[in-house]
Computed example of a mutant assay.
Amino acid sequence: MTAPLLAEGSMCLRPLDARDEDLYLRLHASAQTMRHVSAVVDADTARSRFSAACRMTQSPDPAYWMWAVSMTDPADDAGIALLMADGTSAEIGMLLLPEWQGRGLGTCAVRTLTDYGFNTLGVARVESRQGAHNVGWERLMERSGFQRVEEAMVRPDWLRWRRERG
């Protein structure tokens, strides 16, 4: 099994492939998109990371799968989503282009990834990390049934969220 196509309504999570390079570069070059994640990277670094992400997404091991987040109506690429699973737990993350933020697409993608982790991969919990000042992601996690985990993070400016199966 490799990363599957996942869809809900007009939102589609399509396994990352070569046609998504421009989207990946655009996301990682945007200070607005990266402000809560990490520093903007140069094009060569982003291309190298993109190639690695595509290779891992084609792996049968869900340790690191990435999808292009797309809308089917209207047809448009909106961002990328990530799921890293280790058998008992999964971590999810997402980058959306600024014009797609705050429009419900993130909620749909988080629900789809969480359901996939629980129902297909059989993990016991799904987690996510965020920059402490990312209010949009915090609200999304709360709406999606995640609980804030009050334990020390490696980076003190990050928060951790967890949702248990059940």
Rank of each mutant, 00 (worst) to 15 (best):
Met1Trp: 11
Met1Cys: 07
Leu6Glu: 07
Glu8Val: 05
Ser10Phe: 11
Ser10Glu: 14
Leu13Gly: 04
Leu13Lys: 08
Arg19Lys: 12
Arg19Trp: 08
Glu21Cys: 13
Leu23Ser: 01
Leu23Cys: 02
His28Phe: 12
Ala29Leu: 05
Ser30Ile: 05
Ala31Val: 03
Thr33Gly: 06
Met34Ile: 06
Arg35Gln: 13
Arg35Met: 08
Ser38Trp: 01
Val40Ile: 03
Val41Cys: 13
Ala46Ile: 01
Arg49His: 08
Arg49Asp: 12
Ser51Pro: 00
Ala52Cys: 05
Ala52Lys: 06
Ala53Ser: 15
Met56Leu: 13
Gln58Cys: 11
Gln58Tyr: 05
Ser59Gly: 01
Pro62Ile: 15
Trp67Met: 01
Met71Thr: 13
Met71Gln: 15
Pro74Tyr: 12
Pro74Ala: 10
Ala78His: 09
Ala81Phe: 00
Leu83Phe: 02
Leu83Trp: 02
Met84Glu: 14
Ala85Ser: 10
Thr88Ala: 09
Ser89Asn: 08
Ala90Ile: 03
Ala90Asp: 06
Glu91Gln: 10
Glu91Val: 07
Ile92Gly: 08
Leu95Ala: 09
Leu97Cys: 04
Trp100Ile: 01
Gln101Ala: 01
Gly102Lys: 01
Arg103His: 09
Leu105Cys: 06
Gly106Ala: 13
Gly106Ile: 00
Thr107Ser: 13
Thr107Glu: 09
Val110Ser: 06
Val110Ala: 14
Val110Phe: 10
Arg111Phe: 00
Thr112Cys: 12
Leu113Ile: 07
Thr114Lys: 05
Thr114Tyr: 02
Tyr116Ala: 00
Gly117Asp: 07
Phe118Met: 03
Phe118Arg: 04
Asn119Cys: 06
Gly122Thr: 07
Gly122Val: 04
Arg125Gly: 02
Val126Thr: 08
Val126Phe: 01
Ser128His: 11
Trp137Met: 15
Glu138Cys: 06
Arg139Gln: 13
Arg139Asn: 14
Met141Gln: 15
Met141Gly: 10
Arg143Gly: 06
Arg148Asn: 10
Glu150Asp: 15
Glu151Met: 13
Glu151Ile: 12
Ala152Pro: 00
Pro156Cys: 01
Asp157Phe: 13
Asp157Asn: 15
Arg162Asn: 10
Arg163Asp: 12
Glu164Gly: 04
Arg165Ala: 09
Gly166Glu: 07
